[in-house]
Design a protein around this nucleic acid. Structure first.
Length: 585
RNA sequence: GCGUCCGUAGCUCAGCUGGAUAGAGCACCGGGCUUCGAACCCGGUGGUCGGGGGUUCGAGUCCCUCCGGGCGCGCCA
């Protein structure tokens, strides 16, 4: 419709220029937008105001000229000039009613054709596999998976990936934490390190390891702790203590046994995460191992690429990436003076790997605490010769849990966090996913546990689900009451949908494709939520005031067709959100 | 200190990336089920869009500045 109106206005302007009534070589873009109030018609154009300055004439004067020269069109009921110089276009009811036919004709109404746009990889969650996911990860999981669905609906070819941080010190700390619990099971009395992972799941892993390996990994506690630097609780440094413990574990166990321990911790945590996310309706195309970047030589290759391009230098025995050349605030170490590559080096290799795999675009979903990474990743992209525009980093702000009006503290180390699994069990997957994405991702989210737990009707997901269930019930009733819905009759009777409240529903259906596109463009699933809520609200308003299952076939079928359209859009929209659309509740 | 996200109704948040009289849910007040599902609908109360400057025909939206808050700022991962 906007395209049609734009064409009419352009024709008008061309006419005026041909007549010499306006003198202008370049025209500003003709933009139409939806009006916010019925009195302003259906679509508004601000072209007269934009032309006022370059033409040196009053906006309303220009508006008069444009309207006078506007070609007639059967879809156009009338055009008003209003306010400072808006052109308000009123579309005929018949034109608006045609949206019903469009929705009935297209199961994926509003969605772009599959794979009609570039390929994009969405990486999200990527939690360290050293414990259960907590509610903070939940937001990244909900946002990331919904964004991926949304992009797919927008025509992108989407690949979903989780980057498994299966290398590094965190994992070693997990390994020794498991080991100490394992030794406990062997009858030893230990002093658990302040920096170790204290969660109960560590005991569970140790128990399984005990069953699988027996006493094979056992060492007397005296040997384990002999001559270790003091822990924090003993007046020492917790980092030094735990690092020494890692070294000791390797020495006592030897490579093969240490590896077994390490893998046991990794596998248990990773399996748990996979299962957890699966139950949260988060599916991945690939779980990408960080370790594989090192073992395959990809890290070294990435470093070589940057070095060849002259972006590296050595200082103080370390190898640095000259990130400041690309807008980062400081240069970054990629290889330390002890020879070990940094986490950032792996990041660069992973980045290179993504684009080597042929994705046109890579989207990272990070927690807000990672925002310091944006500049350096962008810098790395440029250093590698990748257009930084192809790299998008979406930061998801923190979800703060509230319980009894108090903030709930979360800490993986301390083992006292609310897990995503707990949350799912309390409120269900639908409510949890919905709650996470109903707010803009760059907005802090207050997650009220009491409210979520109460299964309260306040939870807005029920509004959409209930509307959908009622819609389904309506069609069940139509059958029961022998008041059938016939689509052909409906298509021939769309003029029945003339009530203001029916028109309001039609408008919302009509704009759904634009709303969806807008959500895709700014990567904002919460706009989908808003569009669906508005649609449901308008439908409910109409439904409440009018009987649908009436004897008159034309009116009945027209209204049921409208209901079918709303049901379809609601179900598709909820599908994007990963929320079920129940037929009964 | 520097960077970054944010500040909109009593609470939680939208505001279509510059448009007309700033919206919704909750809360509060008042209405609507003998009829298709009342987890619904209708109406009402409630705002100097943190303060101040600027750009513009036009600013909650863009720029500057101040105030207030979250997060980040290692040869950690």
């Amino acid at each position: 419709m906007k395209e049609l109106l734009t064409g009419l206005v352009r024709a008008s302007l061309d006419q005026l220029r041909a007549d010499g009534r306006i003198a202008l070589d370049v025209l500003p873009e003709i933009v139409f937008e939806r009006t916010r109030a019925k009195e302003f018609g259906d679509f508004a154009c601000n072209i007269a105001m934009q032309l006022a300055k370059p033409l040196g004439r009053k906006p309303r004067e220009i508006a008069e000229l444009i309207v006078a020269a506007l070609p007639a069109h059967p879809s156009l009921a009338k055009v008003d000039i209003a306010g400072p110089g808006f052109l308000n276009f009123f579309v005929t009811s018949a034109t608006l009613q045609q949206v019903v036919a469009r929705v009935l004709d297209d199961e994926r109404y509003g969605f772009a054709p599959k794979d009609s746009r570039e390929s994009v990889q969405v990486e999200f969650v990527s939690a360290n596999p050293n414990g259960p996911l907590h509610v903070g990860h939940g937001r990244g999981a909900a946002y990331g998976s919904t964004l991926a669905n949304l992009l797919e609906a927008g025509g992108y070819k989407v690949s979903r990936e989780d980057y498994v941080n299966d290398a590094g010190r965190q994992m070693d700390i997990l390994a020794v934490s498991v080991w100490l619990r394992y030794l406990e099971l062997g009858g030893e009395t230990i002093r658990f390190p302040d920096n170790g992972y204290k969660g109960d799941y560590v005991r569970g892993i140790a128990r399984d390891l005990r069953l699988a390996a027996g006493a094979e990994l056992h060492h007397p506690i005296a040997a384990v702790f002999a001559d270790l630097p003091a822990d924090e609780g003993q007046g020492g440094d917790k980092e030094q203590h735990v690092d020494a413990l890692i070294v000791r574990a390797r020495a006592l166990l030897g490579d093969a046994h240490y590896r077994r321990l390490f893998e046991a911790g990794l596998k248990a945590c990773l399996d748990d995460i996979k299962q957890d996310l699966g139950e949260f309706r988060v599916v991945y195309d690939q779980w990408f191992s960080e370790r594989s970047l090192t073992t395959s030589g990809a890290v070294q290759r990435a470093i070589d690429v940057l070095a060849e391009k002259g972006h590296m230098y050595e200082k103080d025995g370390a190898l640095w990436f000259r990130a400041t050349d690309f807008g980062d605030e400081k240069d970054r170490v990629v290889r330390r003076d002890n020879g070990a590559t940094t986490y950032f080096a792996s990041d660069i290799a992973y980045l290179l790997n993504k684009f080597d795999r042929g994705y046109d675009r890579a989207i990272y979903v990070f927690g807000a605490d990672h925002h310091g990474y944006v500049a350096r990743l962008k810098a790395a992209a440029q250093g590698l010769g990748v257009d930084p525009e192809r790299l998008e980093i979406k930061l998801v702000q923190f979800a703060i849990l509230f319980e009894g009006g108090e903030k709930v503290q979360m800490s993986t180390r301390a083992g006292q966090f609310v897990t995503l699994r707990d949350l799912r069990r309390e409120v269900g997957v639908d409510a949890a996913r919905f709650f996470y994405v109903m707010r803009s991702h760059d907005q802090h989210l207050d997650f009220d546990l009491d409210l979520a737990r109460s299964q309260s009707v306040d939870n807005p997901v029920y509004y959409l689900q209930y509307t959908h269930a009622r819609l389904c019930g309506l069609f069940r009733q139509a059958v029961e009451k022998s008041l059938p819905y016939d689509e052909a009759t409906a298509r021939a009777s769309l003029d029945q949908l003339s009530e203001p409240q029916a028109q309001a529903v039609l408008e919302q259906l009509d704009r759904f494709p634009e709303d969806l596109r807008g959500a895709v463009e700014i990567r904002s699933p919460h706009l989908v939520v808003a569009a669906l809520r508005e649609l449901a609200a308008r439908y409910n308003a109409f439904y409440n005031g009018h009987h649908f299952l009436v004897d008159d076939a034309a009116q009945r079928c027209a209204r049921l067709a409208l209901a079918a359209c709303v049901r379809r859009v609601l179900a598709n929209g909820l599908g994007i959100l990963g929320v079920s659309a129940p037929e009964t509740m």
